[in-house]
Amino acid sequence: MRHTRTAACSSALLLATAGLVAAPETAQAAPRTPAVGYVALGDSYSSGVGAGDYLPGRTDCKRSSRAYPSLWAAAHQTAAFAFPACNGARTNDVLTDQLAPLGPRTEMVTLTVGGSDAGFGTVMTTCALGGTTRCLSAVSRARSVMDGTLPRDLDRLYTAIGNRAPAAHVVVLGYPHLYQLKGTCRAGLEDAARAAINNAVDHLDTVIAKRAADHGFTFADVRSAFTGHEICSRIPWLHSVDLLSLTESYHPTAPGQSLGYLPALNRAS
């Protein structure tokens, strides 16, 4: 999920061997594909927007050392770890820009993707600034995308991942509810709008989980982990709207990554 915005491990190892040329004195093994055991794909929820401590490199991707892929790789001492997940990525961005590290020796792939496709960034901007009626209309349009083009786009991406990394255990992680209803918030969105947003997250997770299952991937549901830690809860693991750092609004904090996403990935891997 880009603003709502926003994918987590595999086992099975397949070694591609190359034949040798005929003459012994000139025999050479073909170059081997570099072993990238764990590849973390996806959008801002995988790159770690909102968690801070961003890594050098493409600053627009906002990849964090506190994001669940970094934490998992460190905990498992993963020597071959690729982290192409990037803020704002849609399914086609992952398909065209992030799959290069995948190969027959990849053991695990994680990703979150779909929130940006559904336009959750626009939804949250509309809801924060436009009032309840406009918010509900924006949510309805997002749900239409989830039922329209998103399943097809997920199929294309998941098929490409399976083809490029046939031995990998692929874990697709979902998105949490953003709001605790009747919570501590004294201003902002009405509960009707907050409920509609949460229901849209449920719908998005359902679509993603169905497509993941049809491709033999594991879906990791994070909603229960975030229960009691949504925006408007006493101890939120999600940023509310932040006018000083709009990009980080509606994204998991560092505890949201380490206590919400990482345990869900551990259970699924």
Rank of each mutant, 00 (worst) to 15 (best):
N198G: 00
V145H: 05
S10C: 08
A12K: 08
G42L: 12
L154E: 05
L259M: 11
T125G: 04
L41Q: 12
K210W: 01
L99F: 00
A196E: 02
V171K: 09
F81Q: 03
G183E: 05
G148A: 13
D147P: 00
V139E: 08
C232G: 02
A18E: 13
A29T: 14
T106W: 01
A165Q: 05
A80N: 13
V109R: 10
S44C: 12
A18I: 07
C232S: 03
G48N: 09
G188I: 02
G131R: 04
P151M: 11
A12G: 12
A268K: 07
F217E: 12
T206S: 15
T26D: 11
A167F: 03
G19K: 13
T149Y: 07
T17R: 06
A27Q: 15
A51R: 08
P236W: 03
I231E: 02
H177T: 07
A220R: 10
P24V: 12
A35F: 12
A82G: 01
M108D: 06
S70R: 08
S269M: 12
A7P: 08
L55S: 03
S249H: 04
G131M: 14
A118R: 06
F217L: 08
D153R: 15
L14S: 12
G174E: 09
A264S: 14
K210V: 07
M146P: 02
D43H: 01
P31K: 08
R234V: 11
I208S: 11
A192V: 07
L154I: 13
L41V: 11
P31C: 07
Q180G: 06
A212G: 07
S224Y: 02
P101F: 12
A192M: 00
C232I: 06
L15R: 11
D205T: 08
A167T: 04
H169F: 00
T206D: 13
D147F: 01
S64I: 04
A75L: 04
P236F: 06
A195G: 02
F83D: 02
L262Y: 02
W237M: 04
L154K: 08
Y45F: 11
G148F: 05
P56V: 06
A138Y: 07
L95E: 05
L246Y: 03
T227D: 15
V113N: 11
G183V: 10
P34S: 11
G42S: 13
D60Y: 11
L154T: 10
R2A: 14
V123G: 04
C232V: 09
T96H: 13
M124I: 10
C86R: 09
Y54H: 07
L71R: 12
P176F: 14
P56Y: 06
Y261D: 10
S258P: 09
M1D: 14
V241R: 10
S140N: 13
G115V: 10
Y261Q: 06
T132G: 00
T132H: 00
A195Q: 15
C135Y: 08
L259C: 01
R194G: 05
F81S: 03
P263T: 02
L136V: 09
L157A: 11
A22L: 13
L102S: 00
I161N: 05
S249W: 03
L15N: 04
P101S: 08
R66Y: 06
A196L: 07
T17K: 07
A16M: 10
T227G: 05
D205R: 03
S116Y: 02
G88H: 09
D147R: 15
A23E: 15
